[in-house]
């Protein structure tokens, strides 16, 4: 949501931490990573390479947070067992 000039701190200084959480970057994505859990060996390489980071361990499974994933494809490139495929959004 845009802020009015009067609601903004001087110099666009952000006084509350974690303000980047408010900017959901998922809409930047053209391709989304899809994990095939039949191949996934839970090695955590995607988790450690994700620059966002938008891959988290959830119920013992590595899961992509699509609200923040920008679709860079590094996880798919790094996955040693080719368990991640980049799928065009909308397909």
């Amino acid at each position: 949501m845009p802020k009015k000039v009067s609601e903004m701190e001087e110099g666009f200084v952000m006084t509350t931490p974690r303000s980047s959480m408010q900017t959901k970057t998922g809409s930047w994505r053209t391709f989304k990573p899809v994990i095939d859990y039949s191949k996934c060996i839970s090695c955590a390489i995607c988790w450690s390479y994700c620059p966002e980071p938008a891959i988290f361990l959830k119920d013992d499974k590595y899961t992509v947070d699509y609200e923040y994933c920008k679709g860079c494809g590094i996880c798919a490139a790094e996955c040693p067992v080719k368990a991640i495929t980049m799928v065009r959004e909308g397909e």
Binding site: M1, K4, M8, F12, M14
Partner: peptide, 23 residues
């Protein structure tokens, strides 16, 4: 008191921040 200086001003915020500096 941690603060962020020089954060990303996406299209939702940049114009207002710039307007403030112009004024």
């Amino acid at each position: 008191t941690p603060m962020t200086f020089g954060g990303l001003g996406s299209p939702e915020y940049y114009f207002e921040a710039k307007y403030q500096a112009i004024k």
